[in-house]
Amino acid sequence: MNIGEAAKFSGVSAKMIRYYEQIGLIPKAARSEAGYRHYSTPDAYSLRFIRRARDLGFSVEQIAELLVLWRDRDRASADVKAMALSHAAGLKTRIAELQAMVQTLEHLADHCHGDDRPECPILADLAEPTAAESRSQGPHRTPRFGADTPASSRNRGVR
């Protein structure tokens, strides 16, 4: 099958198929006399496998490992299970991080007046060093542009 047919079968775009071939995730496609790529049925199933793994958030490196395991009929399913559980744990960590970000942003937005006043707790928070930065740099105060800058030196636009 040509690259368009392989793309349709697998749900992977032709551009991504060429990329996966370039990085060695799939073998180089056979070429016709005219130079067109030709994919076998196993190639197309590998692409479908890759698509499903990407949909589940596996990295390209992890997918390469999964492909090796998938093709190895003597593999232990425990190896595959360990990879899946490790990935699930990483996703849970990322979900918790994203939920914390949402909570922080919602909290900051709740405390922002959202009016014509220049004071903005969202911008003030973004200007503050993180906890890790504070520990490494010691105590210091980040200037709040607009709030701590004298009115005469603020850029209010061209007159």
Rank of each mutant, 00 (worst) to 15 (best):
M1N: 04
N2T: 06
N2F: 07
E5V: 07
K8G: 08
F9T: 02
F9R: 07
A14C: 07
A14T: 10
I17C: 00
Y19H: 12
I23Y: 01
G24K: 04
G24N: 07
L25R: 05
P27G: 06
A29P: 04
R31T: 13
R31A: 09
S32A: 10
E33H: 13
S40Q: 12
S40H: 11
T41W: 15
T41Y: 15
T41N: 13
T41D: 11
P42D: 15
R48Y: 15
I50P: 08
R51Y: 15
R51K: 15
A53G: 11
L56M: 15
F58I: 09
F58C: 13
S59D: 12
V60Y: 10
Q62W: 09
I63V: 05
A64R: 09
E65W: 05
E65F: 06
L67T: 03
V68F: 02
V68G: 06
D72W: 01
R73F: 06
V80A: 02
A84W: 02
A84P: 03
K92Y: 03
T93V: 07
R94H: 10
I95Q: 02
I95L: 05
E97S: 02
E97Q: 14
L98G: 05
A100R: 11
L105V: 09
L105F: 14
H107I: 06
L108D: 07
H113G: 12
H113L: 12
R117W: 13
R117C: 12
P118C: 09
C120M: 09
C120E: 06
I122Q: 08
L123R: 03
L123A: 08
A124N: 08
D125Y: 15
L126Y: 13
L126Q: 08
E128Y: 08
T130A: 11
A131M: 07
A132K: 09
A132R: 09
R135I: 10
S136T: 07
H140S: 06
G146E: 01
G146T: 00
G146R: 05
D148C: 00
T149A: 01
T149G: 01
P150A: 02
P150M: 03
S153G: 00
R156F: 07
R159N: 10
